[in-house]
Simulated assay, not measured.
Amino acid sequence: MASIDLEKVLDKAWADKSLPEILQAPVSALRGVSDRDGELLEEAFGVKTVADLADLEYVRWAQALAALAPAR
């Protein structure tokens, strides 16, 4: 399993939280995602939490396509 530096992907307020807490956090817990971005994701796709974003079919489709592509 690959490791991830949580301080690089999370807002500072969330970097020390447990994984279950992070998954239930608003998407704005992700570094670079603003509260407004979170509102727009909820309006467009019903995404409220980090877990919702991870489960979004469009995200999974994009990841699958990227995995099939030659190294970029």
Rank of each mutant, 00 (worst) to 15 (best):
M1T: 14
M1H: 15
M1Q: 12
M1R: 14
A2D: 15
A2M: 15
A2P: 15
I4E: 12
I4M: 11
I4D: 09
I4P: 06
L6K: 02
L6I: 05
E7P: 04
E7A: 12
E7N: 11
K8D: 14
K8Q: 14
K8L: 13
V9G: 02
V9W: 06
K12T: 12
A13W: 09
A13F: 10
A13E: 11
D16S: 10
K17C: 09
K17A: 07
S18D: 11
S18V: 02
S18R: 07
L19I: 15
P20Q: 01
E21G: 04
I22A: 05
I22D: 01
L23G: 03
L23K: 09
L23R: 08
L23D: 02
L23W: 03
L23M: 11
Q24W: 00
A25K: 03
A25N: 08
A25C: 07
V27H: 07
V27R: 01
V27Q: 09
S28V: 00
S28K: 05
A29G: 03
L30P: 09
L30C: 00
L30T: 01
R31T: 00
R31S: 01
R31E: 08
G32H: 03
G32L: 08
V33F: 10
S34V: 06
S34D: 06
D35A: 14
R36K: 13
R36D: 04
D37G: 08
D37P: 09
D37L: 05
G38D: 02
G38I: 09
G38L: 02
G38S: 02
E39R: 08
E39F: 10
E39A: 01
L40D: 00
L40E: 04
L40C: 08
L40I: 08
L41N: 05
L41P: 10
L41W: 03
L41R: 01
E42D: 06
E42H: 14
A44V: 00
F45D: 07
F45N: 03
G46L: 04
G46N: 01
V47W: 03
V47K: 07
V47R: 04
K48C: 08
T49C: 08
T49G: 07
V50H: 00
A51C: 01
D52E: 07
D52F: 06
D52K: 00
D52Q: 01
D52I: 04
D52P: 07
L53A: 02
L53I: 05
A54L: 14
A54E: 09
A54G: 01
D55G: 02
Y58F: 13
V59A: 03
V59W: 05
R60K: 15
W61H: 13
W61I: 11
W61G: 05
W61Y: 14
A62W: 12
A62K: 10
A62V: 05
A64E: 14
A64S: 13
A64I: 06
L65H: 13
L65Q: 13
L65T: 11
A66E: 07
L68W: 10
L68M: 10
A69W: 11
P70L: 07
P70R: 06
A71Y: 12
A71I: 11
A71P: 12
A71V: 14
A71R: 15
A71W: 12
A71L: 15
A71G: 07
R72S: 14
R72E: 15
